[in-house]
């Protein structure tokens, strides 16, 4: 379980979880789940196209995911952003279908691009993952405070000279970067679910942004480690375990938040009753 190709899987999985947790914090804060789904899912078309042209799939993925980020950002200025995201996604998927129909070998590749093949990661694939992952984390660190204000109060941010539109595009590019890094090794599904469930769960446990981000990284790490172990034992796809575990973590988070609120309400009611009795 900790030897040979599995070592690569542990390393890549850990890096992906860290990036997913950090970027995911803002995905949840900004309500950007749709682009976080659309960019990785649509970008597989780039890999299919690169395959057709016999070039490095990383280039195809990069072109498509960054193109999608810029396209969604630009078109959202004049239209509804959710409709624009949907259209960008289907356009990329349709191109992917066209590329696949022109090439001869498709089935296993679609499967691995969409659902991942983390257990088959080779050592040469680790370096790009680490490099692009580091770029994502540095980008989030640099953008941290302005991005925070534009996410919570775009009007105030605009009045301070921080253009919300530009930060939207900048953030979509960060998602594109995370996509390019993860899709070839772990698939579109894995990065999407890692960006969503753990971050949403962590935000239920704390009132503080920094702790929520740290918590989302921690939950994402536990999720991927558990998923890898389960997948190794059962031979079922890693993507299945990651998605189910991250949904479960969100369920636990919501449960905790509900319990916490109820306890607070009860405490308030108790103290009010005590005041009433002493009077």
């Amino acid at each position: 379980m900790f030897s040979g190709f599995m070592v690569n899987a542990w390393e890549v999985g850990t890096m992906v979880a860290v990036v997913g947790g950090v970027v995911g914090f803002f995905v949840v804060l900004r309500g950007s789940a749709f682009p976080a789904h659309a960019i990785p899912n649509g970008a597989f078309a780039g890999a299919a196209g690169a395959n057709l042209l016999a070039i490095n799939p990383l280039i195809g993925l990069g072109v498509f995911s960054f193109g999608a980020a810029l396209g969604i950002g630009a078109l959202s200025r004049r239209g509804r952003s959710d409709a624009v995201t949907a259209l960008a996604l289907v356009m990329m998927l349709a191109l992917g279908a066209a590329f696949l129909s022109l090439s001869t070998q498709y089935e296993p590749q679609i499967f691995s691009l969409l659902f991942g093949e983390i257990l088959g990661v080779s050592s040469s694939e680790i370096l790009p993952v680490v490099a692009l992952g580091a770029v994502c984390i540095v980008a989030v660190a640099v953008l941290y405070r302005p991005l925070m204000l534009t996410s919570i109060a775009p009007d105030i941010a605009a009045a301070r000279g921080l253009r919300p539109q530009r930060f939207e595009i900048a953030f979509l590019i960060v998602i594109a970067c995370a996509t390019t890094m993860t899709v070839p090794v772990v698939g579109a599904l894995l990065i999407f679910t890692l960006m969503l469930g753990p971050s949403a769960a962590a935000q239920c446990f704390t009132n503080r942004a920094g702790r929520a981000m740290a918590g989302s990284v921690a939950i994402a790490l536990v999720t991927i480690w558990l998923a890898l172990a389960c997948a190794y034992e059962s031979n079922w796809p890693v993507g299945f375990y990651v998605s189910v575990l991250s949904a479960a973590s969100y369920g636990i988070g919501r449960g905790y938040a509900a319990w916490h609120t109820r306890r607070q309400v009860r405490a308030t009611r108790e103290s009010l009753r005590r005041v009433a009795l002493t009077n």
């Binding site: 309500g31 079922w236 993507g239 998605s243 991250s246």
Partner: peptide, 21 residues
């Protein structure tokens, strides 16, 4: 709402991965 959609979608895709496998 956005989050709910995303969580359901992620879970469904995970299940799809399992069934297809």
């Amino acid at each position: 709402r956005d989050l709910a959609t995303g969580i359901v979608l992620g879970t469904a895709l995970g299940l799809a991965a399992l069934f297809l496998y």
